[in-house]
């Protein structure tokens, strides 16, 4: 039982991170109908920026305060992600406004290649460290309830907490603020929104920028755990089933989908993996999403598609 709970909690915590990446997908899709395959590249790009600037800034300024270095590096990285968002809108998106979903998807694949190449050209392509002072040691919990308690990875726990906070604040931002309302208007109908004077271009920059920041946070969390390296881009592929499960247009869907996939992955790996040779978590998540799609083609919270003739 304790072991099961441990696995479950582990799944929930990694699921929270999936939710964070998935949220980046959902925000962009809602606002611009773009299925952003470049989300993984953005995670890598942002993490690279963070890792390198937290190294460079102390060297330039001759200071050795780790906290300040991280804060400055974070600020610079946010600025960089803003520039990236602006460039993407300027150079690509605005020319692709009314293209089909598939075309837009491929365009983001192109953007992903550019970001991958560009990021590694500027920041280098070795493995870099991000040290934001995340605790590494595990803690025991609920020792009174279970014999031996359950082992929780403190780092995962804090990461999940940060992710949850960000997810909540973003949801509030998009529900309560004027920008959020404008965004939802754009999501509902591009042309109508434009006709009542909502600047499409600016909304897109904002959304891509927000997605860039979620990518940065996800990149920092994963990067401090595993090191900043090219494999970070695969995080986006891990988060795709989440988006599908939750529905492409649903923020709550991204959150709950993330938790379901996180838990499903961990449980399947632990309880099913040994029988089939292990390593099943990546396709298991997809299969889970796929089976689910067969019953609800629009995802958990997605909008129902009605055929009209």
């Amino acid at each position: 039982m304790a072991f099961f709970l441990e696995t479950l909690l582990g799944g929930l915590m990694s699921g929270m991170l999936y939710s964070l990446v998935a949220l980046g997908f959902v925000l962009i899709f809602k606002a611009s109908g773009v299925f952003n395959f470049a989300q993984g590249a953005m995670v890598l790009f942002a993490a690279l920026a963070m890792a390198r600037f937290s190294e460079w800034i102390p060297a330039w300024l001759g200071m050795d305060n780790l906290f300040m270095a991280n804060v400055l590096a974070f600020a610079v990285s946010v600025a960089i992600m803003f520039v990236v968002a602006w460039l993407i809108e300027r150079l690509a998106l605005r020319y692709l406004v009314n293209q089909e979903g598939a075309t837009l998807l491929m365009a983001t694949l192109g953007i992903a290649y550019v970001l991958d190449g560009f990021g590694q050209t500027i920041f280098g392509s070795d493995i870099y460290k991000i040290d934001v002072g995340m605790p590494k040691e595990p803690v025991m919990m609920l020792e009174s309830v279970f014999e031996g308690g359950i082992l929780i990875n403190k780092e995962d726990f804090i990461a999940a907490l940060i992710a949850a906070l960000l997810v909540i604040s973003l949801s509030v931002f998009f529900q309560k603020t004027a920008t959020g309302r404008a965004l939802r208007a754009v999501a509902a109908d591009h042309q109508a929104a434009q006709s009542i004077g909502i600047p499409l271009g600016r909304i897109w920059v904002i959304v891509w920028c927000v997605a860039g920041i979620t990518a940065l946070v996800a990149g920092i969390i994963w990067g401090s755990k595993l090191g900043v390296q090219f494999s970070l881009t695969t995080i986006a592929l891990r988060a795709l089933p989440v988006v599908i499960l939750g529905g492409l247009t649903s923020v709550p869907g991204a959150i709950i989908g993330g938790l379901i996939i996180g838990v499903g992955e961990k449980l399947s790996e632990v309880y099913l993996g040994p029988y089939v040779g292990g390593g099943i978590e990546i396709w298991f998540a997809y299969m889970l999403a796929l089976v689910f799609l067969l019953f609800r083609p629009q995802g958990l919270f997605g909008e129902k598609i009605i055929d009209r003739v």
Binding site: M106, A107, G110, I111, Y113, V114, G117
Partner: peptide
Amino acid sequence: FIIFGSLIV
């Protein structure tokens, strides 16, 4: 990578 991606877009 960069040229390839740009060409696609």
